[in-house]
Design a protein around this nucleic acid. Structure first.
Length: 456
RNA sequence: GUGGGUGUAGCUCAGUUGGUUAGAGUACCAGAUUGUGAUUCUGGGUGUCGUGGGUUCAAAUCCCAUCAUCCACCCCA
C-alpha cells in the first residue's frame, strides 16, 4: 500500500502494550537511581547549536538534527554562498538550534549555568529522548531514550564503584545477565605512550575497541593502514593478548605499561575500583578490558560498558569519567562520572529473551456492563464505590449488545465483568462473570470488593 | 556517507516458463445467540500487487528509475 501517512525514519509509535512494558523498565531504573540519592532533572529537547557542535567529533556533528530558524531563515544566505564547500557556513546561518544528541553535554551546560544553585557533589538522573540522524538498523533508532545517571564535583573513585553497583542492581531486577567491562582512559594513553605513539591515541583506541568484533589480525591491519609501524604492532601484541583474571591482567599491565606516568595512574585507579567491588555483593561479572575505548573522547578516567550475555545487540549501558567537560562551558576543575542506560536496547533485549513479567499490565480490574439509561444511573453509583475502594473499574459507555461489551472486556484483558441489570438492581446482588473460567456468581458490592482485594 | 536484501489484504506470507476474475492463514465484520467474551459453525475480500516509466497482443511476474523498509559497514545506546 502506498505510504500516505507515516512517521520519520528511525522513529516509532508505542502502543499501550509497549508503553506498559516501557514504563515498567523506566520505573525500575528510576527507583534504583533514587535509592542511591540521585535527583531528577530535565533539559529542553533543543539546545543552542553552539552548545552541541564540536562535542561529539566530526562524525557527531553530522549526526546532529538541526532546527531551521523561525521566520525567513534564508535572509542571511547570499546566493554566492551556495556550494558544497560553504555548507557548514550556511548551516550556522539558517540554524541556531539543534536536537540534543545525548544527555551528558546538556547536563554539563546545565551544571555550569546553575552552578550557584547546586549542591556539590551533585548527583542527578535524567530520563529523556535524544536524537541522532544516523541510518537506522537493528538496535539503532533516530529517536531513543537514555537514562543518564551522573555525579559531578567529586573525584572519588567511590562514585565509579557506586555506578557499577547501580548497574548491577538494575539488571538484577530486570533479570538480564550482563558483563560489566571496565577500562581506564589513562591505561589507554599509557599503552599509546608505551608503543611511542602518544599522538595517535584516538586512532589506536578506536581500532583496539574492535578487538572483540573483528579479532586481533584485523585490528593490526587497520592500525597499519592508519600509519602505525610493524614495530608498534609488535609492542602492542602482548597488551592486546592479556589473559587471565582481573588481577592477572593488572599484574601484566603493570609490567608492560607501568613505567609510564599515565599507565601507572590508570592501573592504580583500576585496582582501587576492582578491590572495592570484589568485597561487595555484585552479581554481574566485572571484567577489566584493556581494549575497551568507546567513541566519546571526553572520557579521562574510568570507562564503563555493559553488554548482555544472551543477546547480541551491542552495548546496553555505558559511560565513564570526564574531568574537563564543563570547562568547555567555562567551569573547570569539575570532575564528573556517569553512565547511560540505553532504554530502547534494554527493551529489545528483554523482548528477545521474553523477560517482561506477566503482571506488568495494569488494566481495568472490573467492567460494568451498560444495560441502558435506567441501569446506568445505578451503575454510576456502584462505579464510584468500587473506584473509591481503590479498584480499577470502568463502565462501558454505550448500551451496546452484551456480546460486544463482553468482547471488549475479553480483548482488553479485563478479568471480571459485572452485569448490572434490572433484576440485579432490584435484589442488590449482581451477576459477576469471571472471564478466565467463564463461571458466574451473584455477589453484593461488598463481596465484589472483597473478591478483588483478595485476588491481588 | 558506502554496500546488500525485501516491497502483494490491517498483519504474516504464497503466486509456476509473462496468460482469463490475484490467493492462503490470521485479523476484521455479520449471523447462528435481543443477558454472555474467548472456543465452534455459517457467510462476507476489505487490494493503486510501493510509485513512475519501459518491453510485450498480454506484466504482481522481465528491464530502468524512484521511494520506503530491513540488514551489514563507518560510527554509536
Amino acid at each position: 500500500m502506498a505510504q500516505i501517512i507515516g512517521i520519520p525514519k528511525g522513529t516509532r509509535d508505542f502502543n499501550p502494550d509497549q508503553m506498559i512494558k516501557r514504563n515498567f523498565l523506566f520505573d525500575t531504573i528510576k527507583t534504583v537511581f533514587q535509592q542511591y540519592g540521585y535527583l531528577p532533572i530535565e533539559t529542553p529537547a533543543m539546545e543552542n547549536l553552539s552548545t552541541l557542535m564540536g562535542k561529539y567529533g566530526e562524525e557527531g556533528d553530522k549526526l546532529l538534527f538541526k532546527v531551521l530558524n523561525s521566520g525567513n531563515y534564508l535572509s542571511k544566505v547570499k546566493p554566492d554562498m551556495i556550494g558544497e564547500e560553504s555548507l557548514g557556513k550556511i548551516t550556522t546561518q539558517i540554524s541556531e538550534k539543534g536536537l540534543r544528541y545525548d544527555l551528558t553535554v546538556p547536563f554539563a551546560r546545565f551544571v555550569v549555568q546553575h552552578r550557584n544553585d547546586l549542591t556539590f557533589p551533585f548527583k542527578r538522573y535524567q530520563i529523556q529522548p535524544v536524537w541522532r540522524a544516523d541510518k537506522p538498523q537493528k538496535g539503532r533508532y533516530r529517536e531513543f531514550f537514555q537514562c543518564d545517571v551522573d555525579v559531578i564535583g567529586s573525584h572519588s573513585l567511590l562514585n565509579e564503584v557506586e555506578l557499577v553497583r547501580m548497574i548491577d542492581d538494575v539488571f538484577k531486577q530486570l533479570n538480564i545477565e550482563i558483563v560489566v567491562k571496565l577500562n581506564n582512559r589513562k591505561i589507554l594513553s599509557g599503552i599509546a605512550q608505551t608503543i611511542d605513539q602518544p599522538e595517535m591515541l584516538t586512532d589506536l583506541t578506536t581500532a583496539m575497541d574492535k578487538l572483540d568484533k573483528i579479532g586481533s589480525e584485523k585490528v593490526y591491519e587497520e592500525l597499519i593502514q592508519k600509519g602505525f609501524s610493524r614495530e608498534n604492532i609488535k609492542q602492542l601484541e602482548p597488551i592486546m593478548n592479556l589473559g587471565g583474571d582481573n588481577q592477572n591482567k593488572l599484574d601484566l599491565l603493570q609490567q608492560l605499561i607501568g613505567h609510564t606516568a599515565d599507565g601507572s595512574l590508570g592501573i592504580t585507579e583500576m585496582k582501587t575500583v576492582l578491590q572495592h567491588l570484589s568485597s561487595l555483593n555484585i552479581k554481574a561479572k566485572v571484567e577489566l578490558d584493556q581494549s575497551l575505548a568507546r567513541g566519546l573522547n571526553y572520557y579521562t578516567g574510568a570507562i564503563i560498558e555493559v553488554k548482555s550475555k544472551d543477546a547480541a545487540i551491542g552495548s546496553i549501558c555505558g559511560g565513564g569519567r570526564y574531568d574537563d567537560l564543563t570547562s568547555i562551558f567555562g567551569l573547570s576543575g569539575m570532575s564528573g562520572v556517569g553512565v547511560s542506560f540505553g532504554a530502547d536496547r534494554i527493551y529489545d533485549v528483554m523482548e528477545e529473551l521474553d523477560l517482561f513479567p506477566e503482571n506488568v499490565h495494569h488494566s481495568t480490574q472490573v467492567l460494568l456492563v451498560n444495560f441502558g439509561e435506567e441501569e446506568v444511573k445505578h451503575s454510576l453509583l456502584l462505579l464510584e464505590i468500587i473506584q473509591q475502594a481503590g479498584i480499577r473499574a470502568e463502565l462501558y459507555p454505550d448500551s451496546d449488545k452484551l456480546k460486544k461489551q463482553m468482547k471488549y472486556a475479553d480483548q482488553k484483558g479485563i478479568p471480571l465483568v459485572l452485569l448490572v441489570g434490572e433484576e440485579e438492581i432490584k435484589s442488590g446482588s449482581y451477576n459477576l462473570k469471571h472471564m478466565k473460567t467463564g463461571l458466574q456468581e451473584n455477589v453484593t458490592i461488598e463481596q465484589l470488593i472483597k473478591i478483588i482485594n483478595i485476588s491481588l
